[in-house]
Amino acid sequence: MRDPAPINALKAAKAIQEDVRFQMGPPEEGLRSQTSNVIPFALVRGTRGYLEKVANQANGCYENGWYDAAAVMIRRLLETLIIEAFEKHAIAHKIKNSAGEFFYLRDLISITLSETVWNLTRNTKQALPRLKDIGDKSAHSRRFNAVRGDIDPLLADLRVSVQELLYLAGLK
């Protein structure tokens, strides 16, 4: 007959570990994602802390299968980078309403695509509306739930767009 002591000790250790995890809660600032499947961290490393955190969250959501959350974080990153680019070129007034608030992403993208201070590549011009669409559906559609197949086809577009916007914003 097997000695039950090692099995009982393992069960006790697991129970203690769960109790500690429950009592401590998640880390204050979250965990580092294990992968960079959505946004290569090398793109945002050394830019701004908030950009690094959003990219990390997009990657972490994706690797955990939280595709709606990943799409929303992608949307947020693009919105932020567009604003950064306009601010870098001292033309942020073009993307604000009369109250000084930034426009919604639809208008930000439209104005970005037609801005003459820079010349976006064809790939980014085509990608931005597609990237916005999945983010909008995930953020605003009550009956839409993103799946991996919604995100994966957009990854190359995302990488190109993020890198181009980082350059336009003077962050790389």
Rank of each mutant, 00 (worst) to 15 (best):
L43S: 08
D19C: 07
Q34L: 12
P26M: 10
I16E: 10
V38L: 05
G25T: 03
S33T: 09
D19I: 03
F41Q: 15
S36T: 11
Q34N: 13
L31A: 14
A13V: 06
M24R: 15
P26Q: 12
R45W: 10
S36M: 07
Q23N: 15
T35K: 07
P27L: 09
R45F: 05
N37H: 10
L10E: 12
K14M: 09
G25A: 10
S36H: 06
E18Y: 03
T35Y: 06
L43M: 07
N37A: 11
V44T: 11
K11N: 05
T35A: 11
I16T: 08
L10C: 13
P26D: 07
F22H: 12
N37M: 11
M24V: 15
G25W: 04
A15R: 06
P40S: 07
Q34I: 14
A12R: 08
R45D: 09
A13E: 11
G25F: 01
R21P: 00
G30M: 05
F22L: 11
L10P: 03
F41P: 02
M24L: 15
G25P: 05
A13Q: 06
A12D: 02
Q23L: 15
Q34G: 08
R45I: 12
F41W: 04
V44M: 01
E29D: 11
R21D: 08
V44C: 05
I16L: 09
M24D: 11
R32N: 03
G30A: 10
R32P: 00
D19G: 12
M24Y: 03
R45C: 01
I16R: 06
V20K: 08
V44L: 12
Q23R: 15
V38M: 02
L43T: 10
G25C: 09
L31T: 12
G30P: 01
Q17W: 04
V38A: 03
F41I: 14
K14Q: 07
P27Y: 03
R32Y: 04
A15C: 00
D19R: 05
S36F: 01
L43I: 14
N37P: 01
L31K: 14
A42C: 04
P40K: 11
D19A: 13
F22D: 09
K11E: 13
G30L: 09
M24T: 15
S36K: 02
F22R: 15
E29K: 13
A15N: 11
S33F: 00
R21I: 05
Q34H: 05
Q17T: 08
F41C: 10
E18I: 08
N37T: 06
V44Q: 00
S36I: 00
F41V: 14
V38D: 01
E28T: 09
E18A: 14
T35D: 11
E18G: 03
A12E: 10
K14A: 05
I39Y: 02
T35H: 10
E28P: 03
P40C: 09
L10A: 13
A42W: 01
E18T: 07
P27T: 06
E28Y: 05
A15Q: 15
A13F: 12
Q17M: 06
L31W: 08
T35W: 04
R45A: 14
Q17R: 13
E28M: 10
S36R: 02
M24E: 11
F22W: 10
A15W: 01
L43N: 07
G30N: 08
Q17L: 08
E29S: 12
S33P: 08
Q23E: 14
P26F: 01
I39A: 03
